[in-house]
């Protein structure tokens, strides 16, 4: 197995173009497991840890540009205010050691339906910045995943960054696991209120072949909030509305039975998580108003 260790983004892209079957590795928290289990034996590993362009984040043209190599620990400590949902999700990843190594870019690259970042990114309407020697393109996270552990990445492409607009409203993330840490989600849900556009963001994890939003449920909730004038009045979120939203999120999922949980449980849990995260976020939105006044 060859080990390619480019030291610049340009060199990384050249490597990937020359070795399209090389597997990119950043923190290695997914890739190394697959290698150790002999689930895959790629002819080459492309180590992105020496690529400085991936190692930082910045505000860029009104958006957060989160380098693909920034580890979860920095998302937690530095981006709680700009990417609150993602920071919440990052806190639930693995252990301190894994959060020191693992990256959001790597999470996307692995494209697992259980990836913890994905529901938060979906809810925040984030985009993935993808590069190759052919150029750069931007793909909304909702269009990034194409199947179990598959994405739109072409063989010569690498993820360079995640692009997220700072939140105009509260965000929430909820995850259910079989223990309190070091756990793959049984199911997870990300929620974001976008008062600037009067829209709602949603992200479902571990309950479909890919992470996916629940656009119908989101449009329903945003529409009902609009119809009731709640975006402006910031009145309480009716319990029946939250419950119906939860039901519609549940219906957007396509869970299966596996060793971590049953489809029936996942459906139940999603409806609960959607109802509750929406309520928590809405209550925070109302509190914002109160503290502003």
């Amino acid at each position: 197995m060859d080990f390619l260790a480019p030291t610049s983004w340009a060199e990384a892209l050249e490597c990937k173009a020359a070795h399209p079957d090389a597997v990119a590795i950043a923190g290695g928290t997914d890739v190394m497991v697959e290698l150790n289990f002999d689930h895959r034996r790629p002819p080459a590993l492309l180590d992105l840890n020496r690529v400085p362009e991936l190692a930082d984040w910045a505000l860029d043209d009104g958006r957060v540009r989160l380098g693909a190599g920034v580890p979860y620990v920095r998302v937690i400590s530095e981006l709680g205010h700009l990417l609150p949902g993602l920071a919440m999700a990052a806190r639930t990843v693995g252990s301190p050691q894994i959060r020191n190594r693992g990256t959001v870019g790597g999470n996307l690259g692995a494209a697992s339906p259980a990836g913890d970042s994905h529901p938060a990114l979906l809810a925040a309407f984030a985009s993935v910045e993808i590069g190759s020697v052919r150029g750069t393109r931007e793909v909304p996270v909702a269009e990034f995943f194409t199947g179990v552990k598959r994405s739109v990445l072409e063989p010569d492409e690498l993820i360079s960054a995640v692009l997220v607009t700072p939140p105009s409203g509260p965000q929430q993330f909820s995850k259910i696991g079989t223990r309190n840490a070091m756990v793959i989600a049984v199911s997870a849900f990300g929620f974001a209120l976008h008062p600037d556009t009067r829209t709602v963001g949603t992200g479902i994890g571990s309950a479909a072949p890919t992470p996916r939003p629940a656009p119908e449920a989101a449009a329903f909730l945003a529409g009902e909030l609009e119809a009731a004038g709640l975006w402006s009045s910031r009145g309480a979120l009716p319990a029946t509305l939250a419950t119906e939203f939860g039901r519609r999120v549940r219906d957007a999922a396509a869970p299966i039975d596996d060793v971590r949980g049953s489809a029936a449980y996942r459906s139940h849990a999603l409806s609960v998580m959607a109802r509750r995260t929406a309520t928590w976020a809405w209550d925070a939105y109302r509190d914002e108003n109160r503290s502003a006044a």
Partner: peptide, 9 residues
């Protein structure tokens, strides 16, 4: 996937 408690449990 063979779960044993972690400190947080």
């Amino acid at each position: 996937s063979y779960l044993i408690p972690v400190n947080a449990d």
